[in-house]
Amino acid sequence: MTFKIKKLLIGAIALTLTAQPIAFSVDDIPVQNIHAYALYDRDADLFIDTMNASTPMGIASISKLMTAKLVMDDLKNGTIALTDQVPISSNAQSQDGDGMRLRAGESVTLDDLFHGMLICSSNDAAVALSEYAGGSESTFVNRMNSEAKSLGLASAHFVNPCGLTEYDENHDTKPDQNNMSLMDINRLADQLLTNYPELTKITSIEHWQYEAKGLDKKNTNQLLWLYDEVDGLKTGYTVYAGYCQIVSATLCELQVDNGPFQSIYGAAPLSTVDDSRHIFASVLGAINKTNRNNTLKAIINHAKSDMRVYPITDSQIPLYTDTSRNFSIVPTENISLFLPKDAEISFQLMIDPIWQTTSLIAENTNVGKVIFYNDQAVYTEVPLTIRMLAPDTAVLGDD
């Protein structure tokens, strides 16, 4: 670990670096038979390692995450309810895949359809939900694309709510398919779980019984059986997209390294450092299930064994103190980074000069930010604020 300490910078000085995937080299992740992969730290909103993650490509049933979001939005708004009886159309029945074996003319509870879509990746359930929530499948697909635009998912494009490949009358693959970059998939999944964390109560179910038809459906996410930390999220496969998956996991009892923090402050953090981390591991275009699972396992194992939690700011400890005017400059929140043990971290303070040009120093005034980065990209930015000192208070970090 290298930690470079930069001197205090005065004025509006901008780094030329921009936020982007850090892309550390991980030698043991099998990349020969996949199109893209990513390791994403939800807590820091940081892509730690990626390959081809910004390239739009087929996503198969991962499309159902957007379908799930819109359904959850409608449930929250009260326009639909889990107890609603959803009529099944011939269009829903006609969808490929084993699914829930829905038949036109019957009615199924929305709750059952939602479970079937997320646990056993039922295409008929996804279409039935789209028709009920949207009025028609095409109207719902328009909502999917509008929602993607509003969320800033520039690579996202949907032509159906389930992710099946679209074919023309000659059974040739149409050029227009469900596509998205892996980075945007991770952002969508993060939005979904941030707004609806209860969703993992469904996606973590290993076996689900659809009693109305005597079906015992196994979750398509095989990593649920391999890692206690995994709680979802979504698999997918079509010939067009290959084998795809995004996995949600909460890693606990990770190793914490206070070395970089002590290099700044000369002391350990005063606040308790959380040794858990919420991550996504994701793959697109794997050649088969085994290759998909092996890649995901390698990403998760790397995160568990080769990475460290590095506290970098503590709102109780100032980064600058002016004893003559009785105030300090502190980060607004406690932040840690989840990075490989050999990562480089540098920082710079970007301070608004207003605190030097006026005698009016007020508590909680925003005075700039501290930026943490390496030589390729910015890790994160933390706002800085004024904190007034009690008289005769000794403070770590005195200037």
Score class of each variant (00 low, 15 high):
231 D>T: 14
264 I>K: 00
311 P>C: 02
178 N>L: 06
293 N>D: 15
222 Q>H: 13
96 D>M: 05
169 E>S: 14
342 D>M: 07
104 A>N: 01
155 S>K: 12
72 M>G: 02
96 D>W: 07
182 L>G: 01
122 S>G: 15
334 N>A: 05
155 S>P: 01
29 I>N: 05
385 T>K: 12
88 I>M: 05
218 K>R: 09
323 T>V: 11
377 A>L: 01
272 T>A: 13
54 S>I: 01
135 G>P: 05
188 L>G: 02
93 Q>S: 07
109 T>F: 02
253 E>S: 11
77 N>M: 10
216 D>G: 00
199 L>E: 02
157 H>W: 04
266 G>C: 08
157 H>L: 09
294 N>R: 13
230 V>S: 06
160 N>F: 02
393 T>E: 13
127 V>Q: 04
5 I>K: 15
250 T>R: 14
18 T>M: 02
45 D>H: 13
328 S>E: 13
320 Y>I: 10
334 N>T: 06
269 P>E: 06
287 I>S: 14
353 P>T: 12
371 I>M: 03
159 V>M: 12
108 V>Y: 05
344 E>D: 12
312 I>E: 06
124 D>V: 04
74 D>A: 11
248 S>E: 07
175 P>M: 01
146 S>K: 13
185 I>E: 10
41 D>S: 14
202 I>L: 15
64 K>I: 02
307 M>F: 10
375 D>I: 02
245 Q>K: 03
387 R>T: 08
354 I>R: 14
32 Q>S: 15
14 A>T: 11
204 S>F: 03
55 T>N: 10
396 L>Y: 10
342 D>I: 00
344 E>R: 06
59 I>Y: 02
127 V>D: 09
231 D>G: 05
100 M>K: 07
284 L>H: 10
304 K>R: 14
355 W>Y: 13
143 R>E: 11
358 T>A: 11
232 G>Q: 06
354 I>L: 15
26 V>T: 10
47 F>M: 11
265 Y>W: 10
124 D>P: 00
219 N>I: 02
36 A>M: 12
398 D>C: 03
338 F>G: 04
7 K>S: 15
305 S>C: 04
149 K>E: 15
358 T>F: 03
